[in-house]
Design a binder for these strands. Structure first.
Length: 286
DNA sequence: CGGAGTGTTAGTCG
DNA sequence: CCGACTAACACTCC
């Protein structure tokens, strides 16, 4: 699930809660998800302390005191749950699966901290990964990401440049191309295009200056709105009482194929772009 | 029951 | 360099 707003939400929560925590033990039933080898990563991690938590694109970056960065990618179905020794449990990423007891069968990595708190990495499909890298490899990894859509360096000019560069590509694919703009996935690409009134199939090069401006604004708006609401399917629960992320009711097209357009009432069309399900209103989006 | 589809992305091939 | 396609995996929906 997690796109930029979801990872941003987790990052904000974890930064507050885990600052200074020291790793005591790491356990995994799926060592394949670790780089370097689990046994090596585990040894390196134990004893190190969390100094900060960042986000770049959809990647969560946990900085420790030993020139060591713990990278976590949740991919499609990853979920992080932080359980403090005392107080509120926080969870983010893929919506909470039925079983609330932790660890459960989807828990593939457990990070124990010295103070008794625990971070669980759950992942139904096991696409997610954990990487432990030094500053140098971190920088190399980060080089591959395009501009952060919420940062100041993502300007209208920059956006137009990207559209020009990828003129024959379908606009939705360009929005989702992490090398161009990083952090936008299927949900927010679909939603931003709806608000801008642009068909996801439109070639990037055919987008006029006026449309580009509208799309540019809506990309930022949709992401910001979602962060305000803690993401699309972010879950936050106390004492096992689940509460869904509140962006879902605001979705205009994503996941609504075959239903009525909330703006004009036409049946929303479902198609496939670059192997990804795509929903749009053929009447509102040209 | 079978098959298609699922919020991601790395890798391969033309 | 680009775009198209696939695999990685497990579950849900029709």
């Amino acid at each position: 699930m997690p796109e930029l707003p979801e990872v941003e939400t987790i990052k904000n929560d974890l930064r507050k809660k885990t600052w200074g925590k020291q790793f005591k033990e790491v356990v995994s039933d799926n060592p394949k998800m670790f780089t370097p080898r689990f046994s090596v990563a585990r040894k390196k991690l134990i004893g190190s302390k969390i100094k900060d938590v960042f986000r770049r694109s959809k990647l969560l970056i946990i900085k420790t005191n030993k020139n060591l960065f713990l990278l976590i990618h949740l991919k499609m179905t990853g979920q992080l749950v932080y359980s403090p020794k005392k107080g509120k449990i926080i969870a983010g990423g893929h919506p909470i699966v039925n079983e609330r007891n932790l660890p459960n069968k989807f828990t593939h990595a457990i990070f124990y901290f010295k103070d008794g708190s625990v971070l669980y990495f759950n992942d139904v499909r096991k696409f997610g990964y954990v990487k432990l890298v030094d500053k140098k490899s971190l920088d190399k990894i980060l080089e591959n990401f395009g501009v952060e859509p919420l940062n100041r360096e993502f300007t209208l000019e920059k956006f137009k440049e990207i559209l020009k560069k990828r003129k024959t590509g379908k606009i939705k694919q360009v929005l989702m191309d992490q090398k161009q703009i990083s952090g936008i996935g299927n949900i927010y690409a679909s939603e931003a295009l709806f608000y801008a009134g642009i068909s996801p199939l439109c070639p990037a090069g055919k987008i006029t200056d006026k449309e580009a401006k509208k799309l540019f604004k809506n990309i930022k708006k949709v992401l910001q709105k979602s962060i305000e609401r803690r993401g699309t399917s972010f879950s936050d629960y106390v004492d096992g009482e689940g509460k869904k992320g509140s962006f879902v009711p605001l979705l205009k097209v994503y996941g609504r194929g075959g239903k009525k357009c909330k703006k004009c009432g036409h049946i929303l069309k479902k198609t496939r772009i670059g192997g990804r399900g795509t929903v749009y209103c053929a009447k509102c989006q040209k």
